[in-house]
Amino acid sequence: MGPLIKLIVLNVVVYAILKFVVPNIPGSAPLPASLVFLYMMLTTSGFVIFATVSAESKEAFWGPIQRFLTGENIGGLQALRYGILILFPLLVGWQTYSSTAVSDAPPSENRTIHPAPPGEYTGLSNPISKTPDAIQQGKGFYAAFCSPCHGGNFDGKGPASRGFNPPPANFSDPTTIAMLQESYLFWRIKKGGVGLPIEGMPWKSAMPRWEVELPDEWIWKIILGEYDGAHQAPRTWE
């Protein structure tokens, strides 16, 4: 097998691993195309360094490339050569155009959905015992104050949710309240959208500052009702 074919096989294998194996490892996620490209570039440069360490291996690697670009009497490859010589500048031109053209898209926003809470709200435990009564009361408060946006089904799709950006949180999604402690929810409900730090973009949030309308006890009960209704459990450190 010539070194070039080895390089291609190696790249195909690396691509297949990154695209189909890595995302299926538990706890992993699909890699962005730019990262896949970067890994393949690293694989290629590593291979090129390896393939050119001796004069002999260098000839085996570069020889075919050189013959393809400059050799005479290469038959049908001549057409391919011209094709590539035309295609390459056009691609460079297209790349330059697309990177300098004015974008029609508004600036992307990297909003942190669950920013760190202020120190005084970390590690508070719910002072209300998790009794069926308390949960029931909490669900009642939830229905009155929270469900217009967060939805009767705890899915963030309440009738008043449609105009808001960011959308109200979906509590049945395992990446929302299931990842958070009760003290975090207490902070978010009490201080509302305007209580967020800058990375949470408080100016966009429609979450009310419930401390001006609801006593703390009601907020803690709402938290019990929310977890129960959404079939989630708060995150604990044990």
Binding site: G2, L4, I5, I8, P64, I65, R67, F68, G71, I74, G75, L77, L80, R81, G83, I84
Partner: peptide, 8 residues
């Protein structure tokens, strides 16, 4: 030829 084709 084979490496040539492959490179192209």
């Amino acid at each position: 030829i084979v490496p040539n084709v492959v490179v192209g």
